[in-house]
Protein backbone atom coordinates (compact mmCIF):
# COMPACT_ATOMS: atom_id res chain seq x y z
CA UNK A 1 0.00 0.00 0.00
CA UNK A 2 1.21 3.47 -0.64
CA UNK A 3 -0.44 6.81 -0.45
CA UNK A 4 -0.29 10.42 0.59
CA UNK A 5 -0.37 11.28 4.27
CA UNK A 6 -1.28 14.87 5.19
CA UNK A 7 -0.34 16.02 8.67
CA UNK A 8 -3.08 18.28 10.04
CA UNK A 9 -1.99 20.65 12.80
CA UNK A 10 -4.39 22.03 15.35
CA UNK A 11 -4.44 24.31 18.36
CA UNK A 12 -6.38 22.67 21.16
CA UNK A 13 -8.62 20.78 18.74
CA UNK A 14 -9.16 23.64 16.25
CA UNK A 15 -7.42 22.87 12.96
CA UNK A 16 -5.10 25.45 11.52
CA UNK A 17 -5.90 26.78 8.06
CA UNK A 18 -3.07 24.71 6.62
CA UNK A 19 -4.97 21.50 7.37
CA UNK A 20 -7.78 22.07 4.84
CA UNK A 21 -5.35 23.71 2.42
CA UNK A 22 -3.03 20.68 2.34
CA UNK A 23 -5.77 18.05 2.29
CA UNK A 24 -7.37 19.72 -0.75
CA UNK A 25 -4.01 19.95 -2.53
CA UNK A 26 -3.24 16.31 -1.70
CA UNK A 27 -6.63 15.26 -3.09
CA UNK A 28 -5.89 16.85 -6.45
CA UNK A 29 -2.33 15.44 -6.52
CA UNK A 30 -3.62 12.02 -5.45
CA UNK A 31 -6.07 12.00 -8.34
CA UNK A 32 -3.23 12.65 -10.82
CA UNK A 33 -0.79 10.23 -9.19
CA UNK A 34 -3.29 7.46 -8.45
CA UNK A 35 -2.70 7.67 -4.71
CA UNK A 36 -5.14 7.63 -1.80
CA UNK A 37 -5.13 10.51 0.65
CA UNK A 38 -5.10 9.93 4.39
CA UNK A 39 -5.18 12.84 6.81
CA UNK A 40 -3.48 12.33 10.15
CA UNK A 41 -3.30 14.28 13.34
CA UNK A 42 -1.66 14.08 16.73
CA UNK A 43 -3.75 14.57 19.87
CA UNK A 44 -7.39 15.35 20.37
CA UNK A 45 -8.92 16.87 17.22
CA UNK A 46 -11.85 15.82 14.98
CA UNK A 47 -9.64 14.72 12.09
CA UNK A 48 -12.45 12.83 10.34
CA UNK A 49 -14.04 16.19 9.51
CA UNK A 50 -11.19 16.90 7.06
CA UNK A 51 -12.78 14.35 4.76
CA UNK A 52 -14.75 17.41 3.66
CA UNK A 53 -11.71 18.54 1.68
CA UNK A 54 -11.10 15.25 -0.09
CA UNK A 55 -9.28 12.88 2.28
CA UNK A 56 -10.38 9.27 1.88
CA UNK A 57 -9.28 8.16 5.34
CA UNK A 58 -8.16 9.61 8.63
CA UNK A 59 -5.73 8.43 11.28
CA UNK A 60 -4.92 9.77 14.72
CA UNK A 61 -2.35 9.22 17.41
CA UNK A 62 -4.17 9.94 20.65
CA UNK A 63 -2.63 10.85 23.96
CA UNK A 64 -1.49 13.87 25.86
CA UNK A 65 0.22 16.11 23.33
CA UNK A 66 -0.67 19.36 25.07
CA UNK A 67 2.95 20.48 25.47
CA UNK A 68 5.08 20.31 22.33
CA UNK A 69 7.76 17.63 22.36
CA UNK A 70 10.10 17.07 19.42
CA UNK A 71 10.60 13.38 20.08
CA UNK A 72 6.91 12.60 20.73
CA UNK A 73 5.95 14.41 17.54
CA UNK A 74 8.64 12.65 15.50
CA UNK A 75 7.65 9.26 16.95
CA UNK A 76 3.95 9.80 16.35
CA UNK A 77 4.52 10.92 12.75
CA UNK A 78 6.78 7.93 12.05
CA UNK A 79 4.07 5.62 13.45
CA UNK A 80 1.44 7.19 11.18
CA UNK A 81 3.68 6.94 8.09
CA UNK A 82 4.19 3.27 8.89
CA UNK A 83 0.50 2.57 9.55
CA UNK A 84 -0.61 4.33 6.36
CA UNK A 85 2.24 3.00 4.22
CA UNK A 86 2.72 6.54 2.97
CA UNK A 87 5.13 7.29 0.14
CA UNK A 88 4.40 11.03 0.25
CA UNK A 89 3.97 13.08 3.40
CA UNK A 90 2.69 16.68 3.24
CA UNK A 91 2.96 18.92 6.29
CA UNK A 92 2.93 22.64 7.00
CA UNK A 93 6.30 24.39 7.21
CA UNK A 94 5.49 25.29 10.82
CA UNK A 95 7.77 25.12 13.86
CA UNK A 96 6.96 21.43 14.31
CA UNK A 97 7.39 20.82 10.58
CA UNK A 98 10.87 22.27 10.71
CA UNK A 99 11.80 20.88 14.11
CA UNK A 100 10.54 17.30 14.16
CA UNK A 101 10.14 16.17 10.53
CA UNK A 102 13.85 16.24 9.58
CA UNK A 103 14.35 13.74 12.43
CA UNK A 104 11.68 11.51 10.92
CA UNK A 105 13.36 11.77 7.51
CA UNK A 106 16.73 10.77 8.99
CA UNK A 107 15.11 7.88 10.89
CA UNK A 108 13.38 6.50 7.78
CA UNK A 109 16.01 7.43 5.17
CA UNK A 110 13.34 9.60 3.56
CA UNK A 111 13.84 12.57 1.27
CA UNK A 112 13.06 15.87 3.03
CA UNK A 113 12.00 18.89 0.98
CA UNK A 114 11.39 22.00 3.06
CA UNK A 115 9.19 25.04 2.58
CA UNK A 116 7.60 24.24 -0.80
CA UNK A 117 5.45 26.92 -2.41
CA UNK A 118 4.04 24.70 -5.17
CA UNK A 119 3.50 20.98 -5.74
CA UNK A 120 2.69 19.30 -9.02
CA UNK A 121 2.37 15.83 -10.47
CA UNK A 122 4.83 15.34 -13.31
CA UNK A 123 5.39 12.02 -15.11
CA UNK A 124 3.88 10.03 -12.25
CA UNK A 125 6.02 11.70 -9.62
CA UNK A 126 5.61 14.60 -7.25
CA UNK A 127 7.69 17.68 -8.07
CA UNK A 128 7.97 20.52 -5.59
CA UNK A 129 8.81 24.11 -6.46
CA UNK A 130 10.49 25.95 -3.63
CA UNK A 131 12.46 29.11 -2.94
CA UNK A 132 16.14 29.03 -2.10
CA UNK A 133 18.66 31.75 -1.32
CA UNK A 134 16.08 33.78 0.64
CA UNK A 135 13.68 33.65 -2.27
CA UNK A 136 16.17 34.96 -4.81
CA UNK A 137 16.00 31.69 -6.76
CA UNK A 138 13.43 28.94 -7.20
CA UNK A 139 14.12 25.27 -7.87
CA UNK A 140 12.30 22.03 -8.62
CA UNK A 141 12.91 19.30 -6.03
CA UNK A 142 12.36 15.59 -6.60
CA UNK A 143 12.71 12.71 -4.15
CA UNK A 144 14.19 9.36 -5.19
CA UNK A 145 13.78 7.57 -1.83
CA UNK A 146 10.76 5.36 -1.08
CA UNK A 147 9.32 8.09 1.15
CA UNK A 148 9.31 11.84 0.51
CA UNK A 149 8.44 14.35 3.25
CA UNK A 150 7.43 17.78 1.94
CA UNK A 151 6.73 20.79 4.13
CA UNK A 152 4.62 23.51 2.53
CA UNK A 153 4.66 27.23 3.26
CA UNK A 154 1.24 28.24 4.68
CA UNK A 155 -1.14 30.04 2.26
CA UNK A 156 0.58 28.56 -0.82
CA UNK A 157 -2.69 27.23 -2.22
CA UNK A 158 -5.37 29.20 -0.41
CA UNK A 159 -8.53 28.11 1.36
CA UNK A 160 -10.51 25.40 -0.46
CA UNK A 161 -14.26 24.88 -0.42
CA UNK A 162 -15.28 21.92 1.72
CA UNK A 163 -18.30 19.84 0.89
CA UNK A 164 -17.11 16.24 1.00
CA UNK A 165 -18.16 13.80 3.66
CA UNK A 166 -16.71 13.15 7.09
CA UNK A 167 -14.50 10.02 7.09
CA UNK A 168 -13.91 7.35 9.73
CA UNK A 169 -10.87 7.71 11.99
CA UNK A 170 -8.45 4.87 12.71
CA UNK A 171 -6.38 5.12 15.87
CA UNK A 172 -2.65 4.47 15.37
CA UNK A 173 -0.85 2.88 18.30
CA UNK A 174 2.17 4.76 19.54
CA UNK A 175 4.07 4.04 22.73
CA UNK A 176 5.13 7.40 24.17
CA UNK A 177 8.90 7.82 24.38
CA UNK A 178 10.67 9.48 27.28
CA UNK A 179 11.73 12.94 26.12
CA UNK A 180 14.97 14.06 27.80
CA UNK A 181 13.97 17.70 27.17
CA UNK A 182 11.63 19.21 29.75
CA UNK A 183 9.56 22.34 29.14
CA UNK A 184 9.77 24.39 32.33
CA UNK A 185 8.10 27.59 31.18
CA UNK A 186 5.93 28.80 28.33
CA UNK A 187 5.52 32.50 27.62
CA UNK A 188 2.48 33.32 25.51
CA UNK A 189 2.41 36.78 23.91
CA UNK A 190 -0.21 39.29 25.05
CA UNK A 191 -1.59 39.91 21.58
CA UNK A 192 -3.90 37.19 20.31
CA UNK A 193 -3.50 38.11 16.63
CA UNK A 194 -2.93 35.37 14.08
CA UNK A 195 0.60 34.05 13.79
CA UNK A 196 2.44 36.15 11.17
CA UNK A 197 3.50 33.09 9.20
CA UNK A 198 -0.12 32.04 8.75
CA UNK A 199 -1.70 35.48 8.45
CA UNK A 200 -3.86 36.33 5.43
CA UNK A 201 -3.25 40.07 5.80
CA UNK A 202 -0.24 41.85 7.20
CA UNK A 203 0.54 45.52 7.80
CA UNK A 204 4.22 46.23 8.48
CA UNK A 205 5.87 49.42 9.62
CA UNK A 206 9.46 50.55 9.27
CA UNK A 207 12.08 52.86 10.68
CA UNK A 208 10.17 55.87 9.39
CA UNK A 209 7.62 55.55 12.21
CA UNK A 210 10.21 57.16 14.45
CA UNK A 211 9.08 55.89 17.85
CA UNK A 212 7.22 53.05 19.53
CA UNK A 213 4.37 55.44 20.37
CA UNK A 214 3.91 56.43 16.75
CA UNK A 215 4.20 52.82 15.60
CA UNK A 216 1.39 51.96 18.02
CA UNK A 217 -0.70 55.01 17.04
CA UNK A 218 -0.32 54.67 13.26
CA UNK A 219 0.41 51.05 12.29
CA UNK A 220 -1.69 49.13 14.82
CA UNK A 221 -4.98 50.92 14.05
CA UNK A 222 -4.46 50.19 10.34
CA UNK A 223 -3.86 46.56 11.27
CA UNK A 224 -7.11 46.55 13.24
CA UNK A 225 -9.04 48.26 10.43
CA UNK A 226 -7.82 45.69 7.90
CA UNK A 227 -8.12 42.69 10.22
CA UNK A 228 -4.41 42.26 9.64
CA UNK A 229 -1.53 41.02 11.77
CA UNK A 230 1.17 43.61 12.44
CA UNK A 231 4.75 43.11 11.26
CA UNK A 232 7.85 45.29 11.17
CA UNK A 233 11.14 45.80 9.42
CA UNK A 234 14.35 44.98 11.21
CA UNK A 235 15.16 48.65 11.53
CA UNK A 236 11.88 49.14 13.42
CA UNK A 237 12.54 46.11 15.62
CA UNK A 238 16.13 47.14 16.35
CA UNK A 239 14.83 50.56 17.41
CA UNK A 240 12.32 48.80 19.73
CA UNK A 241 9.24 50.16 17.96
CA UNK A 242 7.99 46.57 17.68
CA UNK A 243 8.91 43.26 19.37
CA UNK A 244 11.35 40.85 17.73
CA UNK A 245 8.58 38.32 17.05
CA UNK A 246 7.02 40.79 14.62
CA UNK A 247 10.11 41.12 12.41
CA UNK A 248 9.57 40.12 8.79
CA UNK A 249 12.56 39.20 6.65
CA UNK A 250 15.56 37.03 6.26
CA UNK A 251 16.39 37.10 9.95
CA UNK A 252 12.74 37.35 11.00
CA UNK A 253 9.57 35.61 9.86
CA UNK A 254 8.86 34.39 6.35
CA UNK A 255 5.30 35.33 5.53
CA UNK A 256 3.00 34.52 2.63
CA UNK A 257 -0.24 36.52 3.01
CA UNK A 258 -2.87 37.49 0.47
CA UNK A 259 -2.22 41.15 1.29
CA UNK A 260 1.01 42.74 2.56
CA UNK A 261 1.00 46.48 3.27
CA UNK A 262 4.50 47.93 3.71
CA UNK A 263 4.32 51.31 5.41
CA UNK A 264 7.48 53.43 5.35
CA UNK A 265 9.63 50.41 4.54
CA UNK A 266 12.31 50.77 1.88
CA UNK A 267 12.23 47.14 0.74
CA UNK A 268 15.81 46.08 1.43
CA UNK A 269 16.74 42.71 -0.04
CA UNK A 270 16.66 41.12 3.44
CA UNK A 271 13.15 42.42 4.06
CA UNK A 272 11.97 41.21 0.63
CA UNK A 273 13.36 37.78 1.50
CA UNK A 274 10.59 37.39 4.07
CA UNK A 275 7.59 38.71 2.15
CA UNK A 276 8.15 38.68 -1.58
CA UNK A 277 5.77 35.76 -2.20
CA UNK A 278 2.83 37.77 -0.77
CA UNK A 279 0.02 37.78 -3.32
CA UNK A 280 -0.74 41.52 -3.32
CA UNK A 281 1.85 43.98 -2.03
CA UNK A 282 0.91 47.56 -1.21
CA UNK A 283 3.60 50.17 -0.55
CA UNK A 284 3.09 53.47 1.19
CA UNK A 285 6.28 55.48 0.91
CA UNK A 286 7.27 59.07 0.32
CA UNK A 287 10.07 57.97 -2.01
CA UNK A 288 8.78 56.89 -5.44
CA UNK A 289 12.14 55.20 -6.12
CA UNK A 290 12.26 53.01 -2.99
CA UNK A 291 12.99 49.36 -3.94
CA UNK A 292 9.68 48.19 -2.43
CA UNK A 293 7.88 50.06 -5.24
CA UNK A 294 9.11 47.55 -7.80
CA UNK A 295 7.32 44.77 -5.97
CA UNK A 296 4.11 46.62 -5.16
CA UNK A 297 0.91 45.98 -7.07
CA UNK A 298 -0.39 49.28 -5.66
CA UNK A 299 1.64 52.15 -4.30
CA UNK A 300 0.79 55.45 -2.73
CA UNK A 301 3.60 57.98 -2.85
CA UNK A 302 3.15 60.27 0.12
CA UNK A 303 3.69 60.94 3.80
CA UNK A 304 2.58 57.91 5.75
CA UNK A 305 1.40 60.11 8.63
CA UNK A 306 -1.24 61.53 6.26
CA UNK A 307 -1.92 58.48 4.11
CA UNK A 308 -2.40 55.88 6.86
CA UNK A 309 -5.03 57.80 8.87
CA UNK A 310 -6.84 58.51 5.58
CA UNK A 311 -6.73 54.81 4.78
CA UNK A 312 -8.16 53.90 8.18
CA UNK A 313 -10.99 56.39 7.49
CA UNK A 314 -11.61 54.99 4.00
CA UNK A 315 -11.78 51.45 5.37
CA UNK A 316 -14.32 52.53 7.98
CA UNK A 317 -16.47 54.15 5.28
CA UNK A 318 -16.27 51.19 2.94
Amino acid sequence: MSGILVLAEHDGGVFRKTAAELVAKAASLGASLGLDVTVGTIGDAPVGSLGAYGAQRAVRVSGDFGAYSTLQTAGAVAAMIDAVGASIVLAPASYAGKDALPRVAARLGAGFVADCTDLRADGGALVARRPMYSGKAYVDARVSAAIGIFTVRPNSFGAPAGGGAEVAVTEVAFAAVADPITVVESRVPESQAVDLTEADRIVSGGRSLGSKERFDEVIRPLGAALGATVGASRAAVDAHYAPHGEQVGQTGKTVNPQLYVAVGISGAIQHLAGMRTSRVIVAINKDATAPIMEHAAYAIVGDLFEVVPALVEALKEA
Binding site: V113, Y138, A141, T277, E294, A297, Y298
Partner: peptide, 23 residues
Protein backbone atom coordinates in the same frame (compact mmCIF):
# COMPACT_ATOMS: atom_id res chain seq x y z
CA UNK B 1 17.68 11.22 -2.10
CA UNK B 2 16.61 14.76 -3.03
CA UNK B 3 17.70 16.40 -6.29
CA UNK B 4 17.27 20.00 -7.37
CA UNK B 5 16.88 21.29 -10.92
CA UNK B 6 15.36 24.08 -13.01
CA UNK B 7 16.97 26.92 -11.02
CA UNK B 8 15.40 30.23 -12.00
CA UNK B 9 14.75 33.74 -10.78
CA UNK B 10 11.56 34.28 -8.77
CA UNK B 11 8.44 34.58 -10.93
CA UNK B 12 8.03 38.10 -12.39
CA UNK B 13 5.29 40.23 -10.95
CA UNK B 14 3.04 42.23 -13.22
CA UNK B 15 4.02 45.89 -13.11
CA UNK B 16 2.30 47.68 -10.30
CA UNK B 17 0.84 51.14 -10.34
CA UNK B 18 1.04 54.33 -8.34
CA UNK B 19 -2.33 55.60 -7.18
CA UNK B 20 -2.61 59.35 -7.77
CA UNK B 21 -4.41 62.01 -5.75
CA UNK B 22 -4.15 63.54 -2.30
CA UNK B 23 -4.04 61.27 0.76
Amino acid sequence: VVTFSAYADPPERPKGRVIPGDA
